[in-house]
Design a protein around this nucleic acid. Sequence first.
DNA 1: CTCCACCTACCGAACGGTCAGTAGGAGAAT
DNA 2: ATTCTCCTACTGACCGTTCGGTAGGTGGAG
Lengths: 189, 189
Amino acid sequence: MDPLRTRLIAEATRQFVERGFDGASMREIADACGVTKAALYYHYAGKADLLRDIVAGYLDQVAAVVAAGRRATPKFADQLRAIVRGLFALPVESRAIMRLALHDLRHLDDADREAFAADYQTRFLQPLTDVVRGGIEAREFTPHHPTTVVWLLLGMLYPFFSATPRATDESQIVADLLDVLLSGLTARR
Amino acid sequence: MDPLRTRLIAEATRQFVERGFDGASMREIADACGVTKAALYYHYAGKADLLRDIVAGYLDQVAAVVAAGRRATPKFADQLRAIVRGLFALPVESRAIMRLALHDLRHLDDADREAFAADYQTRFLQPLTDVVRGGIEAREFTPHHPTTVVWLLLGMLYPFFSATPRATDESQIVADLLDVLLSGLTARR
DNA sequence: CTCCACCTACCGAACGGTCAGTAGGAGAAT
DNA sequence: ATTCTCCTACTGACCGTTCGGTAGGTGGAG
């Protein structure tokens, strides 16, 4: 449909992830796509506009993973498992956007940033928190502050959400992660 | 002794943490200290030189925390507890440097970056890994890949190592974190 | 003829970094 | 006591480069 627009977003994602928002340059993004900077500005209003589209697309992906994980199974522990596996199954460039979103969101103008933050809360953090809270209320999990548990879970993912993979055998990492996390959440006191 | 040099490093840390390495400007760092940019360059060879000193000071702090935690107690689980509490007890600006070091290390020249990476490995990651491995060998912890466990632990800390604190009651977070992590590591299969 | 998609050419601003110059104090020589 | 020298710790003006962004033109498709 719109191959240049798609290629520009892909290239911008690559550069933002690799060099950060500030470190990336509009000229190099355009050059890498074989067009001039003016062509880039024809399709996107500005640098922040690129970032906004990138993080919005990322949010769509992770929100879909969480929603699918919740639908997949009734047991809350299995929902968590499905969600973590789903997040690891995202293409590596998508995962790296997690870092980008956390770090460079400040470059969006106030309205866009607040809109993203609100969407992130309702479409990603809130459903995740609901899984944890549901697990605690169903006595599947030991009682902890659900929000804190979600932060711990996302933090555990963080080191592996890099553009440069930490290890070749990711399935072992996912297994260890889920084992430590779920043992920690389900251990009897 | 050397108050300007100290103030420059403190201000540079503040700006690097707040706006990132690329986003911070030498002029503004100097301005905030009430001197010109040239004065800054009299004390530091360049922007990367500032970053090098900042992350080196950070490494000294976290290495000291790990060493103290290892000495404090013979039980490996208690060593982990002491280390996590020690890391959370660091001043908030020190903790934020963890993000800085992970993200902006690429701005150091090859020699400095490799030197830091080596120091980080031997003085921080290795001792931490030894605690986990020791705990596994002593059958305090369930068997997992020690390196992975260290990454999971550091990741769990990560969301709380921000310049803007996540919560007012950090002791509750530390307690939840240690509970989830150590339950996860000590649960019987 | 018009409009889309793109180009060339350029803008002002900010960047990291450099350089000659100098205020002011310490030390030695006279 | 005075002068000369030297050094540290700066200043202010400036360098070339790169930045995000824009104005106006052009060629091809319908």
